[in-house]
Amino acid sequence: MSFDMETQYLGLQLRNPVTVAACPLSGEVAKLLELQAAGAAAVVLPSLFEEQIEHDELEVARMLDLWALSSPESPGYFPELDNYNTGPEEYLDLIREAKQSLEIPVIASLNGCSPGGWVKYAGLIERAEADALELNIYHLPTRCSESGAEVEQRYCELVGSIKQNVDLPVSVKIGPYFSSIPGMAGKLAATGADGLVCFNRFLAPDVDLQNLNYEPALEFSTSSELRHALRWIAILRDQLELSLAANGGVHTSADLIKALLAGADVVALASALLQHGPHRIAELIQGLNAWGEEHEYESVQQMRGSLSLNRCPNPDDLKRANYMRALVSHTPK
């Protein structure tokens, strides 16, 4: 009997549990087609950044205005062009084109910077007929007076307002830094989130020793990073109905299998694809299939969460945060 790899994610039926995370590769339809051919079950497009749109619009306006109409000799210094392509249109076109070209579900990703902006762009994305929406929430508190509760409140209000305004399935890509990840996940689920992506890899800048300032630093993930997601997915799996995606650190079929066992519905790949190319997906799927068959699993459905906190044989090890000598019991329990 063959191993059934189908899975469900955000209410979407997927042919296997390997999806493509928002990354530069998913921004071009040609690449998306390659990824689909390699076996990807769904793709998340790169994020539409509200801040970027506003920045671009302001830059265009500033450039056209800054020196305009200040000299008798020149009404301005740039030719007025037909269209500056500043708005979200380019992104919405990408959604529409991806939807037309692909058979697998297309998930849009959004990073807003104002409450109105999130809702507005979510609506536009829905109208462009994306299959689902991933919210790439990135709030970096910098004031000591800002409490965790305020941050959580902000996340929940945001998700709530989007769920009220669009009918799309919505997943939230959260960071690993909450006082209580299960608490936060529970609140998001209660607010209506359909899925969680664990976790967003926040890229911290590096110090440039030459210029003595910070510079953006982009590094690929490694398999060891996955362990973070494994633990929290295993902990959340038993308590929440919503979809769970493991993101960050899935590079090998072993990583994929681990994520599924912990309770992920899907994994999302980015670094692995950027490093090795789309064919990596096929290798992962092949590996999963071989492992499933070898270990006589019927389906992904069956193995999914079999190592969750409640179902694993050693939950204490999962819960332990620091290394300590193994506690040996000498008496029967």
Binding site: E57, V60, A61, D82, G87
Partner: peptide
Amino acid sequence: TYSKRGQSI
């Protein structure tokens, strides 16, 4: 006037 430059403007 400004729609060409963007809705935020």
